[in-house]
Structure formats: structure tokens, C-alpha cells
Design a protein around this nucleic acid. Structure first.
Length: 123
DNA sequence: ATTCTAACA
DNA sequence: TGTTAGGA
């Protein structure tokens, strides 16, 4: 019976997720996590750990902390459908942004081809 | 040893 | 986000 911990220090989580404690404190400043305190020290529970996981996943998907906060804050609330709806909207926005970046990159690459050709041609 | 806040050559 | 100073 492996008892699951109920408390974590900031370094425990930093180590577990491969980030710095600085980042974790920053997410707290942005109101994405609200660990309890034992004196001035932060104490994280499983729930905080899950939220941190969600934050990191959101970041991997390219969402801003503000957007991630929006989604996370919607969880547990009444209209759980609201959460899904909002997430879908953010995905759409993110997709548009990525498509635009893709276009920009393709354009740039094409432009480099032209420039490169000219430079090679002129002697 | 660890963590905390505040601040920026 | 890094990093460092100065405390607890």
C-alpha cells in the first residue's frame, strides 16, 4: 500500500516536473495556483499538483498563462460545458495563430531562396 | 540545507 | 525566467 503524499514542498514539485521553483512562484503570482502556507513556506497538496500539471500542459500547447488560468478557473464550476466551450474557442484561436506563423515561415523561406539564388548568380 | 521576498549589470 | 542578495 503505497500511501500517496498529501503535501509537497516547492522543490518537490519543481523536481518532479523539471522546472524551477522560480516558475512555480511565478504561476502563483499570476494566480494560477494558490498553495497554503505554513508560516511563510508554501505547502502544495495533490490538487495543486494537478493544477501545475494542467499549467504545464497548457504551456506545451502554446497557451498563455492568462488563458490557462481561464480554463482552470472554469473547472469545478457549475457549467462544466462552459469550460469545454471556452477551451474549444482557445484552440481555434491558437490554430489560427499557428497557421499564420506557418504562412510567415513559408514566405520567408521562399524569400531566402530568391535571395540566395541572386547571390549565387552574381559571380 | 531550504525556502522566501524583492529586485535587476 | 534567470539570478542574486539578505533573512528566517
Amino acid at each position: 500500500m503505497t500511501e500517496e503524499k498529501t503535501e509537497y514542498s516547492i522543490s518537490d514539485l519543481a523536481k518532479e516536473f523539471g522546472i524551477t521553483s522560480r516558475s512555480i512562484r511565478h504561476y502563483e503570482d499570476e494566480k494560477l495556483i494558490t498553495p497554503t502556507r505554513r508560516g511563510v513556506h508554501r505547502i502544495y497538496n495533490n490538487r495543486d499538483r494537478v493544477r501545475l500539471q494542467l499549467i504545464l500542459r497548457g504551456k506545451r500547447l502554446g497557451f498563455s498563462l492568462a488563458e490557462i488560468k481561464e480554463i482552470i478557473d472554469l473547472y469545478g464550476m457549475e457549467g462544466e460545458e462552459k469550460q469545454t466551450k471556452r477551451l474549444l474557442e482557445l484552440i481555434t484561436v491558437r490554430r489560427e495563430s499557428l497557421n499564420q506563423q506557418l504562412k510567415d515561415i513559408k514566405y520567408l523561406l521562399k524569400e531566402f531562396d530568391v535571395l540566395e539564388a541572386k547571390l549565387n548568380a552574381e559571380k
